[in-house]
Design a protein around this nucleic acid. Structure first.
Length: 886
RNA sequence: GGAAGAUUAGCUCAGCUGGUUCAGAGCACCUGCCUUACAAGCAGGGGGUCGACGGUUCGAAUCCGCCAUCUUCCACCA
């Protein structure tokens, strides 16, 4: 037995075991006869680095996968990364800029070379970091959403939906990101209340010849820089204030362009001035009004958010600069009535934080109506369970109001849309250029490859990640529903559980359900566990800019991976936000140390083949066996409900309180002549067995320390690992063993309390008298831990301290050490409490309504309370008598 | 503007279909201990009108209504 230090040193242990696990291929899974248990990782951005959110998510994933593995299932956790088109592309653009290279100066191919280079250098760092956390992913299965075959799957999917008539190309008002220079989907727009200004502008009524009359109306707008794109001013047809305007035209301020007055009930009479400037090119609603009234569309803002030549004035100015300048111009021209402060909801790009510009552009869309119905039904019917359940409401709302998905992005990093344009504008959609040419030649046999050109845009990242649970196993399948799933897909799909954040419930989870149904007719997973957001102690989101996010790797280096995992789980009740605090990680570290030291104690025991098993040890072994089983039951129940932190807490208390503080203290051998006596073999074997079970029980949350100690606990074979040891199973037990021991614990705590209170230090042996129930089987335990040398049935007599547990009366004689007056006062107080309690019970029982209507069991319980109280009162009165006669 | 959820000890939470003395856990706190596994520890202890007000019921932390506060999601009022 080697000498173990008093402190657990995680860093040397962790690297050792992780490399062993890797070397042995313990994480790798292949289809076999066992039941599969599968999780696909929510793929982090390929260029991302590990943050606390990942730690939470991947710890939970790893706990589930390790638990399943020990339950005897064929556990497979597929890792990988996401190409995250807009996020990665903007990083690459930024790096090129640092090198003095502008994206505009590069060809698509040159840019992609840089991007791939960047991916090779920085990609996958996060996966390496996950290993430090102990994540037991099947690294042989690592996937990237832009692996060639996965990209093919994305392309096939596009072709599939196009040919099915669900994908169309059209001019629509989209959310334009003027910094990312791409359209983004509705879900990628974040609305934030933003302080802005409400400008009241004068629009003069035209005299019909391009000149103005002296009448004018006031139009309120937050975007005066768009007036040059106005196509009309609208009033509500029922607004009597403006009936005189009907049929007239007005002049756009500054540029004096004549535009009509139109009537549309969209305009609210009570809002603003009741006059709405209609700017179809730059506002979603105005676009709709424009369509209704056949208004011309003037687009005055370019892709970068600058005014273009259509604007007539302020050409080339940024939209916000233009707003300031035009305010001044309007004021100088006497056309600015007033300016009010105003809070308006402004859309921002999730990725670049740029103010979204509603913009007309030609984009590709996927019809969502039918897909959303399927995805909604899956959750409503319970085939896909959301945990916690409250997200169902949000989910339903989203699914019922979903709009078509804008899937094209004006980027280069991603899967290029497989659509080719013929010279006459005809579109052919095929999986590659050859097929496209062939299709084109069917239309016009004279065409050559040079005559057709491919769409420049790429697909939304989520259009690839929604295939993730399928394509990681069988990239051939998506888009080819007649293709027979390969062996991996057939075995691992559907996966079991998905752990992810609620922020991507719609982006990702819902769409995976759609894709799963489309291609396999089956949901991709049965349970979706939605974690909370990791916040700091005072509730702020963790963010780089606030600097309140610790680097997980630093934490692991300082406290150990097991401690970090514990710290994270301790504060993570499902569905609630996580208030992270380093003290929780400290608690995790302390727990590791506790386990470590209990191991030092146990392995230090000397064993005697001949020694008799002491009665206390026999009782302790019997009790802990039952306690272990009852806790295993509780833990299994918690796991089945995804209450991971409760499962952890149950084992934590079992290990620390029950095993260390009670069990080990009971079986710990006494000392004689400064040396510990050897332990009997029966107790020793039982103890080792318990420790082994405890390690296995807690391995899913603390993989490293458990492997280290489990390997050392007994001789293990080269290929043995706790990872594949079985989850301990609960055995039948007599519940009386547990209740008896609980009683004994109360006795011991009471006696210890008396000793501390009476200052009986150093401790001296006491005797104990009892009347009423007493757990004989634990008498020896009480003697040992409470330092009592005799336990006898008998009434209190002489000086001493009485206490009651249940209806039993216990008495510790303490001649000369007791303040009788104090004991009398204490007993009187207790008696008074019992009497009042009795009164309340009797009041209940004398209520006819209660006895007649409450269930029998409840009434019986009340009657027992009454009887117990009476018995206690009798005891207390007897005690008082004794005390008063001293 | 609409919707959902939350409110229990100093902090983070549990308390499942109302009913055992139901008001709990962990951490923090207080007191005493460096007792030969562990001071990152041991032993003992204090602490809450279950957000407010009404209602249903024999009985409410638990069910219903309303109010307050917080969080989140959704939303095209210029």
């Amino acid at each position: 037995m080697k000498e173990l230090s008093a402190k657990y040193n995680p860093s040397e242990v962790e690297d050792k075991w992780y490399s062993r696990w890797m070397e042995k291929g313990f994480f790798h899974s292949e289809p076999d006869g066992r039941e599969p248990y599968t999780i696909v990782i929510p793929p982090p951005n390929v260029t991302g680095i590990l943050h606390m959110g990942h730690v939470l998510n991947n710890t939970l994933n790893d706990v589930l996968i390790r638990k399943a593995r020990m339950d005897g299932k064929n556990a497979c956790w597929v890792p990988g990364t996401d190409h995250a088109s807009i996020a990665t592309e903007s990083k690459v653009v930024a790096r090129l800029k640092e090198q003095g290279i502008s994206k505009e100066d590069l060809t698509r191919e040159e840019f992609l070379r840089h991007a791939w280079q960047w991916k090779e250098e920085h990609g996958g760092i996060i996966l390496k970091q996950l290993r430090k956390l102990g994540a037991s992913c099947d690294w042989d299965r690592t996937r990237f959403t832009m692996d060639p075959d996965l990209s093919d799957a994305v392309i096939s999917t596009f072709v599939h939906f196009y040919k099915k008539g669900l994908i169309y190309r059209g001019v629509r008002m989209v959310n334009w990101d003027p910094v990312g220079l791409t359209a983004v989907s509705d879900e990628e727009v974040i609305h934030k209340d933003t302080p802005s200004k409400f400008f009241h502008l004068r629009y003069y009524v035209s005299d019909g010849n391009g000149g103005r009359t002296d009448k004018y109306i006031v139009v309120a707008t937050t975007r005066p820089e768009t007036i040059m794109a106005d196509a009309a001013v609208s009033i509500n047809p029922d607004d009597e204030r403006y009936h005189w305007l009907k049929g007239k035209t007005v002049l756009i301020p500054l540029i004096n362009k004549e535009i009509p007055i139109i009537e549309d009930s969209y305009v609210e009479i009570g809002f603003g001035t009741g006059c709405l400037k209609v700017t179809p090119a730059h506002d979603v609603n105005d676009y709709a009004i424009g369509m209704r009234h056949n208004l011309p569309i003037t687009d005055i803002i370019d892709d970068h958010g600058r005014l273009n030549e259509n604007a007539v004035i302020l050409i080339g100015e940024d939209r916000f600069v233009a707003r300031k300048k035009i305010e001044k111009m309007l004021a100088e021209a006497g056309l600015l009535e007033k300016v009010e402060d105003y809070i308006s909801p402004i859309g921002y790009s999730e990725r670049t934080d740029a103010v979204i510009e509603p913009k007309l552009s030609t984009q590709w869309f996927l019809k969502m109506e039918d897909l959303a119905k399927v995805a909604l039904d899956s959750v409503e019917s319970g085939r896909t369970k959301l945990i916690p359940d409250k997200y169902r409401n949000t989910y339903r709302h989203w699914m019922e109001n979903v709009r078509d998905w804008c899937i094209s992005r004006q980027l280069w990093w991603g899967q290029r849309i497989p659509a080719w344009y013929l010279p006459d504008g005809t579109i052919v959609v095929e999986e590659n250029a050859e097929k496209a040419l062939a299709a084109a030649q069917k239309i016009d046999p004279a065409l050559t490859a040079a005559d057709i050109h491919q769409d420049e845009d790429v697909l939304d990242t989520w259009f690839s990640s929604w295939l993730w649970p399928i394509s990681v196993f069988d990239p051939e399948l998506p888009g080819h529903p007649d293709h027979k799933p390969n062996a991996d897909l057939a075995y691992y799909y559907p996966t079991n559980d998905l752990v992810t954040g609620p922020d991507i419930l719609f982006f990702w989870v819902a769409r995976m359900i759609m894709a799963g149904d489309e291609f396999l007719g089956k949901e991709p997973f049965s349970n979706v566990y939605l974690t909370g957001i990791v916040r700091d102690k005072i509730g702020r989101k963790m963010s780089k800019t606030l600097g309140n996010s610790p680097d997980p790797l630093d934490l692991i280096a300082k406290y150990g991976a097991d401690a970090v995992r514990i710290g994270m789980l301790l504060c993570s009740s499902a569905g609630n936000d996580i208030f992270y605090d380093e003290s929780q990680v400290e608690q995790g570290r302390n727990f590791c140390n506790k386990i470590w030291n209990s191991y030092r104690l146990i392995t230090g025991f000397a064993v005697s083949e001949t020694a008799e098993q002491p009665a206390a040890s026999a009782a302790a072994v019997e009790w802990f066996k039952a306690k272990l089983s009852s806790t295993i039951e509780a833990v299994e129940d918690h796991y089945s409900k995804f209450r991971i932190s409760d499962a952890l807490m149950a084992v934590y208390r079992l290990f620390w309180d029950d095993f260390c503080s009670w069990y080990l203290e009971i079986v710990k051998p006494a000392y004689e002549d400064g040396k510990p006596l050897p332990m009997d073999k029966a107790t020793y074997d039982a103890t080792i067995g318990f420790f082994d079970a405890l390690l296995r029980l807690i391995h899913p949350v603390m993989p490293f320390i458990t492997e280290e100690l489990w390997q050392d606990l007994a001789p293990r074979g080269e290929n043995e690992t706790i990872m594949f040891a079985k989850t301990p199973a609960a055995e039948a037990y007599d519940p009386a063993i547990l209740s008896d021991f609980a009683f004994a614990e109360e006795v011991i705590v009471a006696i210890r309390g008396i000793c501390q209170q009476k200052n009986l230090l150093p401790r001296q042996a006491l005797s104990l008298l009892f009347t009423g129930f007493f757990p004989e089987r634990d008498a020896a335990v009480i003697k040992k831990l409470a330092l009592v040398d005799s336990v006898e049935e008998g009434k209190a007599s002489g000086e001493g301290v009485s206490f009651m547990i249940g209806t039993s009366e216990l008495f510790v004689p303490l001649g000369g050490l007791v303040d009788t007056a104090e004991e009398i006062a204490k007993t009187e107080k207790e008696l008074d409490y019992q009497k009042r309690f009795l009164d309340s019970v009797r009041k209940k029982l004398s209520n006819e309504a209660f006895t007649s209507r409450a269930p029998e069991a409840v009434v019986a319980a009340e009657r027992k309370k009454e009887a117990d109280a009476l018995s206690r009162i009798a005891s207390l009165e007897a005690q008082l008598d004794t005390l008063r006669n001293l």
